Computed example of a mutant assay.
Amino acid sequence: MVRLFTEELNIGYGDRLIVKDLTVQIPDKKITTIIGSNGCGKSTLLKALTRVIPHQSGTVVLDGSNIAQENTKSLAKKMAILPQTLDSAAGLTVGELVSYGRFPYQKGFGRLSKRDYEIINWALDVTGTQFFKYHPVDALSGGQRQRVWIAMALAQETEMIFLDEPTTYLDMAHQLEILELLQQLNQQQERTIIMVLHDLNQAARFADHIIAMKDGQIIKSGNCHEVITQPVLKEVFRIDADIGLDPRTQKPMCITYNLIGGV
């Protein structure tokens, strides 16, 4: 089933096109990962899919409607996005930051209702951050802060969560912690997860669907066995990769690689 797709999407900054004539479908209730080299349009596509930035032409369709014409609060009840660079939460406690996820549901003076508090506490519980509810966000570790931002996204009660490089600046253990949390949200709550990742082996391990991009266009999309291949990685990243199978997951993994044609 597909609820979100694009048709001949063009996205750019000024006169420079970053994403060109892109048509893509996002599988519902699955984990989709977008991979590609720096500057290929991964983050730009993610932002356009969530209307953070406008597109120049083409359409982004969600549930049969063009998102460009969707009411902002209505759209915020369907999709949440965590950008690569998160806004400062200086002076906020964890509970206060997570409560911002309830904005699409607030009316009048914006007071939180009993239902709002129930959802906030649920989001804290699910992400394992309830203990930090009254702690300053700035006092947390990188992995803990990332969990709190995910809790805020969950508090929006959206069925789709978009994340731009959610494991950046985290050590290996915290990267795995965040990715396993997202996988749990997908498998247990059927959340549709769309994220940009740089680590090919993490993409292969956790994604149901992978989109490989180069120069603003899709080179290959499909499951990990279809995308994490020597020819695709050669075209997308200009590397000669040796691909094996992860002994724990039987998913493809990049064992080693060389640059093609030197530096």
Rank of each mutant, 00 (worst) to 15 (best):
A76N: 12
W149F: 15
I210G: 02
N186K: 12
H55G: 06
T229G: 09
V98D: 00
L245S: 10
I193R: 00
Y13D: 00
G262L: 02
E180W: 05
D125L: 07
V19L: 01
Q146M: 09
Q250W: 04
G95Q: 11
V60E: 11
L112I: 13
D171N: 05
G261W: 08
Q156K: 10
G58K: 11
L97H: 14
I31K: 05
R51S: 05
V61N: 14
N121F: 06
K30Y: 09
I119L: 01
T129G: 07
M213Q: 03
K214I: 09
K251W: 00
M152S: 11
E7L: 06
Q183A: 04
D21W: 04
H55E: 01
T256F: 01
P252F: 10
V61W: 04
T85A: 08
D116F: 02
G36A: 10
M195N: 04
F131N: 09
Q130R: 15
H225D: 14
E8F: 04
A76W: 10
V126C: 12
A204K: 05
N223I: 13
K251V: 02
K42M: 02
H198A: 07
T192H: 03
G39K: 06
S43E: 06
T23A: 00
Q250K: 08
Y169M: 11
R145W: 01
L124D: 07
V24M: 14
V263N: 10
I53N: 00
L4T: 03
Q183V: 02
L163W: 09
G262Q: 06
L245H: 06
T129A: 13
I243P: 12
I193Q: 00
K78A: 07
V98K: 00
A68V: 12
G108V: 08
I11R: 04
Q146I: 14
K42G: 02
